[in-house]
Design a protein around this nucleic acid. Structure first.
Lengths: 104, 104
DNA sequence: TCAATAGTTCATTATTATCGAACTATTGTA
DNA sequence: TACAATAGTTCGATAATAATGAACTATTGA
């Protein structure tokens, strides 16, 4: 049984947030999540075409454990949701500001 | 002879910038640089009291190679200057936004 | 029950962080 | 001029973290 780890909102740290976003792949994942109403499955992470599933899974875990996304299992796939409200309550406006430059 | 490596402004990347700031020590260094008119020597990095010189030197190098600071030797000490204009020309407003939360 | 789909976990390798010790360069002083 | 003090870098080692491919698990549908 898979147990996903999600930090509480108040445990989201700035260094953790920046570290999770300090990777071009993860920036693209989060950026395209924001464009898709903040929600996507792992395999929808089309911005990363030639990427091994395990690597993708790893990136989603980094994002999850930094408090950037919430992952829930729905049927056979994972539903990943951007924790935009939680992040904004900790660091108002920061995520949008970063992602303004992250789409490239 | 010590040669410091500084990327050109146009070579500063978002992922590189975030990665360099994705560390509590470096956040504190940059944050306190901003408060001191964007300039400090390595040994002034008082926010990191019990830190080995070599570790401090390492962090300054990370910041330098990400394009966040410019280091120049002045007499016996290093003068580190925040490259605020260069960063703002690449990512307007981003650094200030991040550092708003970085003082902790 | 069996295959397909969607991801995770494991083991390995590669990076990065931290530290102490040794080194280099600049200054001040006897 | 030589010598110590100051400020920092570089090197080597160790420990923690990240990236990746191979093997595994869980859900769904035929």
């Amino acid at each position: 049984m898979v147990q996903f780890v999600h930090p509480f909102t108040e445990d989201i740290t700035l260094a953790g947030l920046l570290g999770a976003l300090a990777d071009p792949m993860r920036l693209r994942i989060v950026s395209s999540m924001l464009q898709k109403d903040g929600c996507m499955s792992c395999s929808e992470a089309a911005p990363c075409p030639n990427m091994a599933k395990s690597t993708l899974s790893h990136h989603f875990r980094i994002l999850r454990e930094a408090g950037i996304i919430h992952t829930g299992k729905v049927g056979v796939e994972n539903r990943n949701v951007l924790r935009i409200n939680d992040i904004n309550s900790r660091f108002p406006g920061l995520l949008e500001q970063i992602l303004k430059f992250g789409g490239n």
